[in-house]
Structure formats: structure tokens, C-alpha cells
Design a protein around this nucleic acid. Structure first.
Lengths: 243, 243
DNA sequence: GGCTCCTAAATTGTTAACAATTTACAATTA
DNA sequence: TAATTGTAAATTGTTAACAATTTAGGAGCC
């Protein structure tokens, strides 16, 4: 991987974006080392900003930092997936309830969500990975409606996790019914616009549960059986092993 | 603030610990700037590691980073408090439920919690700030029983927030009934040891709600009335304005 | 007096050299 | 052969100088 050695805009944040993309594209795989000198040569920049970018990605959980031993791309596992969905479900519920109240008081700004929704609709037919990205961005915009910055931030972090899962757990995301996904999102959005807290939260939790089910679909019976050992499956997602 | 200019162990993490302590002790107040040169002189170290420490603290949310304009100590507000309690309540519930299941399968290691509990019991009589610290550490240990690393990490972050609130929102934490606090904790712990999911989660959510009530106590009626405008109060904490 | 513009100081951002640590690998030994 | 030790290379950690940006304060102007 050499990136473009052209000196494009290179703040640590932008460097982190490019390295993150490289990881999500699959250029770097879990366990791969990120070597500072290598990266700084590629970007045509000194090691300082690269170090900072690496630490930003470590804070996201995308890579792991080992003292004096550099950074390696983190390897997600199934437990991580379930935990991330659990976080999205519970924090998302709070944010969505909050958004409903805001709507009832007539102070909900839906321009961002609407924009992300139209982007999502366009993305559904095309490239599956792009569809997942658009999906995650729409969901984040939905949660942002709650105007709860700390919850939004935590939620946003889990979006990166999901991207990583889709990439590295080799989910067959092409198999997912993206149209149904969009419908479920729109349903939550509509409920928020109606200011109906109970309905919106129910639809949201149901949506996450369905996502978990779809997530598991491509796996073997053995792997799924193992997943069902996890208490999260009953306690949080309330899904049964259908096979 | 000069810290000890002696070259004590100075990895970025330890530097962050010392700066965090300085903030929590009140040496730096919300809005104060952290100047890299100043800090590096104090610690007798170059600016590199200081920069990294500052960015670690920024990731914790303790300070705010403004591009090209340095770092300032973050100023918490009441909305932050409510949000943080909401996060602790919902993620904590998941972790505690998980811990109950582990207990039922006989694979719960309670040595850390027990240690933190005895430290907490000792701390209750003495310095109020130390008692709050011990309290937070015990709660973190309790959540760690769930063995859900991402949830634990997010929870741990909120512990720093609470410390900041107690310091900078000038909570009269001396007024809190620390013995009652310990009793509520022990009750949750006992329920986990019994493997009783419903009871443990109920006690936990009840405990957080009570904490929110106690947190508000020192404030004026006007401030409290304002707090009750927040949807979180009804939706998440289910507390009524008693005054 | 208050406003804008300008310059100097203070501060953050970046770089390249140096120091400390880890890794890789060959030579040595049992 | 397998394990161990020693050494060189690779890599991360730190430093100090330099560049770019922001801040502070005063001169000139209305």
C-alpha cells in the first residue's frame, strides 16, 4: 500500500480517515502491523502526524496499540458483534425517545436525516458495501435527532465497528434484504415524526433484533449454535434459534 | 502548577494521570488552557509526550481540543450529567444481567469486587471525595463482572465524567448519605450473587434513579425545575419533581 | 472613545535526528 | 535437532529546532 504520495491535505484526522479506509477496503487485514515509517513515507509526511493518526484509530478501537511494539489491526469476534448491537439498541432507544419528545415540542430539524435517507435510497440498488455505509450514516443521523451528544458519540463509534465486522467477519451482506432494511428505518423515522415514543422505540428495538438475525444468517449451524450460548441473545435481543 | 520537576516515571499515560489528577483536584478549572510548553517544563520532558497525554485526556472528554488553538478544560453542564447517568443505567443493566447469567453457570470471579467493596467501606467515613472515588471504582468493578469489554470501557469513561461533575458543578457530595449508597451497592451485588437477573437489574436502575435524585438535592428550586424540563427525567429516570 | 489594521509574541504543528526498545537471525551449545 | 545467547537491523519513543498559526496589544483613523 502506498497511498498517493502526493502531498494532499494531511492533517492527522485526514490521515486517520485514509488509513481507516485502507483497513475497511481490506488493504490491511486483522493482525497486520502498521509501521510508522512506512506510512509516513507513503503519505510524504513526517512520523509525528502519523503517530497521532494511529492513536486516533486506536481510540476508535480499529487498531490495537502495544507499548514499544507498534500498532496492529484489531481482530473482531462474534462476541464483539453482539455487544455492539446491544449498545446500539439500548443507547439508540434513549436517543429516539428523546427525539420524539423534541418532535412533540416542534423543535426537530430533520434536514440531515432526510438527506441521508435519500442517499440511502439511491445506494440500495448498487454496491453492497456502499449500501451498508449509507445505512449506517442514516442510522447515525436518526440517533443525532435525540440531541444527546455523548450517546451520539458512543453510537457513532459502534458504526465503525459494524463496518469492520462486515469487512472482516466476511458477512455476506449482499444477501441482506436492503429494501426491507430501508423500510424498517423509514418506519422508525415516521414514528419519531409522529412523536410516538413507544412505537418508535419498539420499532427500533425490533429493527436491531432483525439485524442481529440477518447478521447470523450466513453462518453455519455450528457457529450459530455457539452464538446462542451468549446470554445477550436471550436477554437483550430476545431471539430464538430458529434452525 | 509546577508538578514535581523531578523526572519521575513519565510515559504519556502517567503524564495523563497526573494532569487528570490536577484537573480533578481543581488546579485547572473549566475553561483554563493547557499550554504544552508550560506542562513540558513542569514535568521536565519534551512536548511530544505531553501532546500525546493531552490527546488521551481529550479522548476521555476531560478537555477540549481546538485546532491550532490548544486545549482547554471542558466545562460540564447539567444535560451532560443526566446523559451520563442514562448511559450508566442502560449499559449497566446489560452488564449486570450478563453477570447474573455467568453466576448461574458458576463462572463469576468476585475477587476484584470484594476488594473494591472493602476499600469502599473503609472510605465511607473519611474524606468525601475519596468516598466518591471508591464508590465509582466499586461500581466499575461490578460492571466488569459482566465481562463485556466494550460496555465496560464506555461505563468506565462515564466514571471520569462523574468525578468531574462532583468537582466542578460543586455538588455538595458531603451531603450524600454514603452509608445508604453502600447498602444499595451491596444489594445489587447480592442479587448478582443470587443469579437473580430481574432483581439485580431492578435494584441497579433504582440505584441510579436515587443517585440522580441525590445529585439534584443541593440545587435551587429554579435549577431543579429546569432539570425537570428534560425528557430524560421522565423517560429514563422516572423521577417526579418532589418539591 | 471605539474601530480597523498591523506587527510581535506566544503557541501549536511539523520535521528530522537521536535514544531506547524490540525483533530477526545467525552462531553456539547441549 | 532444539534451545539459547549475542548481535545487527528494524522499529518505536523522545528531543529540539523550525514553520505556521493564533493571540495580544498598540498605532492610526473615524
Amino acid at each position: 500500500m502506498t497511498f498517493s504520495a502526493l502531498p494532499s491535505a494531511t492533517t492527522p484526522e485526514l490521515l486517520a480517515d485514509q488509513i481507516r479506509d485502507a483497513i475497511l477496503i481490506g488493504t490491511y487485514k486483522p493482525g497486520d502491523r502498521l509501521i510508522e515509517q512506512e506510512l509516513s513515507d507513503s503519505f510524504g509526511i513526517s512520523r509525528g502526524p502519523i503517530r497521532e493518526a494511529i492513536r486516533l484509530l486506536a481510540a476508535e478501537g480499529l487498531i490495537e496499540l502495544r507499548k514499544n511494539r507498534g500498532a496492529v489491526v484489531a481482530a473482531p469476534n462474534f462476541d464483539d458483534v453482539l455487544e455492539v448491537y446491544a449498545i446500539r439498541m439500548s443507547l439508540g432507544s434513549i436517543a429516539i425517545a428523546h427525539a420524539c419528545h423534541a418532535q412533540k415540542h416542534g423543535l426537530l430539524d430533520t434536514t440531515v436525516v432526510n438527506k441521508k435517507l435519500s442517499l440511502l435510497k439511491k445506494a440500495v440498488g448498487g454496491n453492497a458495501f456502499a449500501a451498508v455505509s449509507a445505512d449506517l450514516e442514516f442510522q447515525t443521523a436518526l440517533i443525532e435527532l435525540g440531541a444527546l451528544p455523548r450517546i451520539t458519540e458512543t453510537f457513532q463509534q459502534t458504526a465503525v465497528d459494524i463496518s469492520v465486522f462486515v469487512r472482516f467477519l466476511e458477512i455476506r451482506y449482499e444477501a441482506a434484504d436492503h429494501q426491507d432494511l430501508v423500510d424498517r428505518h423509514v418506519a422508525v423515522f415516521d414514528a419519531i415524526l409522529q412523536g410516538d415514543v413507544d412505537k418508535a422505540v419498539d420499532l427500533w428495538t425490533g429493527h436491531i433484533r432483525q439485524s442481529v438475525r440477518e447478521f447470523m444468517q450466513p453462518f453455519s449451524d455450528l457457529e450459530i449454535a455457539e452464538l446462542f450460548e451468549r446470554p445477550l441473545m436471550q436477554d437483550v435481543f430476545e431471539v430464538e434459534n430458529a434452525r
